[in-house]
Design a protein around this nucleic acid. Structure first.
Lengths: 209, 209
DNA sequence: GTCTATAGGCGGATAGAC
DNA sequence: GTCTATCCGCCTATAGAC
């Protein structure tokens, strides 16, 4: 609206120190959560002084929100839509199996994502707007991809494709939560293929196990 | 092993002050999580002095663990097995619908349970033993009840009843997490009956929606 | 057993030099 | 822009009176 010099378009990720602070803060907040993270540790992790942290971000809450918003809107937005689902020639059991495996691969291997979900859920009482951003950008993306696939793939004729999408995503995310995030692998062991194969057998018609 | 006077069998819930501390600590820890809760606020909530808190429990960590263990082992152990599933005469769709509705009723109405899950997941990095206790006493209980039902009810003949149980519990718990705990109700609205009906249609054979 | 008072440290945030 | 040094409050935990 004014004739001022153009600003850096998105958030200021170009400054070297600013980037370091975001990376350091990310490391600490994802490891410890919001309350247990101190600005001293963030500064140390970013290898800058605490005053420099406060010159780039208004306060602890502002830094935390900036970091989580970046993760929600940029880094993990597409984690639940890892492959193209516009291929209606390939057998649905192939497509769905590939989709489930990629979701679990990404989420299981990247410890960052598990810590990210831990923080989102753990802080969802104190930071409801971040939880909503997660639902909008991460969960809803997965729902949409699967709902569209179940709607448009001619092999399916579900009365409520969106509900089936919820069941698919929900089964996989809950599996991730119990086996990995809650350290349940040794308590209630289950190979991921058992879950995925049973899920696909329920969803894909004329498919006997 | 000795001739000493008999002690109170389980944890000491009989002392009036001790009970108040557990209740006050529960209120604060479930509302704020571990790190954001101060022992001053616990003492205030319990209407005792801080020194009294420390005379009943070794330290903050010990109090937290005592409270969460109580919730995991006593209060919420049966939240995922709310009705008898030994009735093989009633139609499975009736049994399963009732089961799903009771699980979601209890968990949705009791805000305490949502805060409890938030804390379990949020602190599962710092307190893995509490997360494992949750898996053992709460999640695995639900898995077992449904696996046994799918195994013994003659209407079913699943290749992997345990995996089907995971899908059932996972769909419902994930629905609870997204709609309630992550405040997604207004972002990705869905009546619970849509989820439950679609889930039952997938699981119960010869049942058309 | 329970209290008041306090020790001792770490927390978020800022002042002021460069 | 970045630093060092510091303010001040709240934190966990305890000492000592009753």
């Amino acid at each position: 609206m004014t004739n001022e010099a153009p600003q850096i378009p998105e958030r200021n990720l170009s400054s070297s120190k600013g980037e370091a602070i975001l990376r350091g803060g990310m490391q600490e907040f994802l490891k410890n959560g919001y309350a247990a993270t101190s600005m001293d540790r963030v500064a140390k992790a970013a290898q800058v002084s605490k005053a420099t942290v406060y010159s780039h971000f208004q306060d602890k809450e502002g830094l935390f929100i900036a970091i989580i918003k970046y993760l929600v809107e940029e880094k993990f937005q597409t984690i639940f839509e890892p492959i193209g689902t516009d291929n209606f020639a390939t057998e649905p059991e192939i497509i769905l199996k590939e989709l489930a495996n990629r979701m679990l691969d990404t989420a299981s291997e990247e410890l960052v994502f598990q810590n990210f979900m831990r923080v989102i859920i753990g802080e969802s009482g104190r930071f409801p707007q971040l939880a909503r951003a997660f639902v909008t950008n991460v969960e809803a993306t997965g729902f949409r991809v699967l709902r569209d696939y179940f709607t448009h793939c001619p092999r399916f004729n579900f009365a409520d494709p969106e509900a089936i999408a919820r069941i698919f995503v929900g089964s996989i995310v809950h599996f991730l939560i119990v086996q990995e995030m809650l350290h349940g692998k040794d308590i209630v062991p289950m190979e991921r293929d058992r879950l995925i194969d049973s899920l696909i057998a329920l969803i894909v018609p004329d498919k006997k196990m």
